[in-house]
Amino acid sequence: MRNWFQSQTWHKLKWPLAALALVLAYNFFFTPGFFQIEIKNGRLYGSLVDILNRAAPMMLVTLGMTLVIATGGVDLSVGALMAISGAVAALLLTQTALAVPAVMAIALGAATVAGLLNGALIGFLQVPPIVATLVLMVSGRGVAQLITDGQIITFSNPAFEFIGRGAVLGMPFPVVLVVLGCVALVLFTRKTAAGLFIECTGDNEKSSRYSGVNTRLVKMLVYGICALLAGLAGLIYVTNIKAADSNNAGMWMELDAILATVIGGTALTGGRFYLLASLAGAALIQALTTTILTRGVPVEWTLVVKALVITGVCLLQSEPFRRSVQSLWRKSPA
């Protein structure tokens, strides 16, 4: 255990966790009932559970985004992919008699195929990631609107709604999905060679390719994984509101996910990545949002406060900043 506290994993995890602890401490003193958790109908309720539940789509997307950023790329299309998978699912539920698992598989499949196409453009045709995914970010939302014919499709299907509204052992099902997704990705990246290949591709693509790593396939794969997770987040979103709203599903999700990844210490230039720290970053962003809303701060202030806190975390992570603060600290008492 002592060894673990010296590892890079902990080193990257501690700053977002510290910030999260600060936010929670603030609520402990100033928001009555924030830490109350009650059990109703075999399900946990309370602000803390609420934060996790609301953060779940962002956390899923952040997991995928972390892998993409680790290869030195970025995926701007995650919000549009959420809209696509939601639209496909709603259409199939209302227009066909397909079983729920089939609906899910097709919806997730649609998102994944779009992601793999993106990955192929980036990996094999060397299109810059920001361009390739920007195209899908803009056009994907259009595709989603075409699928729903420009309408908001509402549906009612209790089995399907379990994705966003169900609970396992009292825990909201989206939170369970995040845990499963995280465990699966950690196993995939650390128990197979995938993590090594992703990190070396992001760190020095040429060296990796000359060493026999199929960097093109690595890139295609991470965009596929990211799209699959975005699709899953899209399903959670539609079941939360029981409707496919292609205009708003996953709006600005890409920015939150990139932010969470950066807070988690994965460099935008690629290389080493930290899945757990990224999740902590996502939790921090959602905790802030929830805190601001429950404190009744005017909505206009929400984004400003968020920006300030996140800038603070990024400053804490910056080595030169920490050093100059330390030297100030040492000088000032004298």
């Binding site: 060679a193 090594l196 290949f197 990190e199 070396c200 760190d203 020095n204 040429k206 060296s207 990796s208 000359y210 060493s211 026999g212 790593v213 199929n214 290389g271 080493r272």
Partner: peptide
């Protein structure tokens, strides 16, 4: 630019081709 993977460890750099 063509051989080392700078931020990865000596161990990871050594096993890279074998693993690939």
């Amino acid at each position: 630019t063509e051989a080392i993977v700078p931020n990865l460890s000596v161990r990871e750099n050594i096993i890279l081709a074998l693993q690939a």
